[in-house]
Amino acid sequence: MNPMNYVILATVLFSVGATAVLLRRNAIIAFMGIELMLNASNLLLVTFARVNGAIAGQVDAFAVLVVAAAEVVVGLAIIIALSRSRQNISLDEPSEMKG
């Protein structure tokens, strides 16, 4: 199968994720968009590891997985702290800061 298909799939996933971050107003959904972007990059790394015959790409994908997991811990902690104090996690709430 043509490996370019995987590159196209990864690009589509990345774009869907980026769109979710930019357009969705729920912090959790926006965060899921970021995770989708990271996994699109993982797909690219694995694909190119196969295409280029460089196994390092597959190892890199594992490093990215670990980082993504750490990011989830920090991100959810921040979102939960905010939801406790504001009772919602909409990114459209009137902002405390202006200018």
Partner: peptide, 16 residues
């Protein structure tokens, strides 16, 4: 996190 995800995608493309 958005910016670093963008960075990573770029790095993957350059790896390709």
């Amino acid at each position: 996190a958005f910016a670093s995800a963008i960075y990573l995608f770029g790095a993957s493309l350059v790896f390709g």
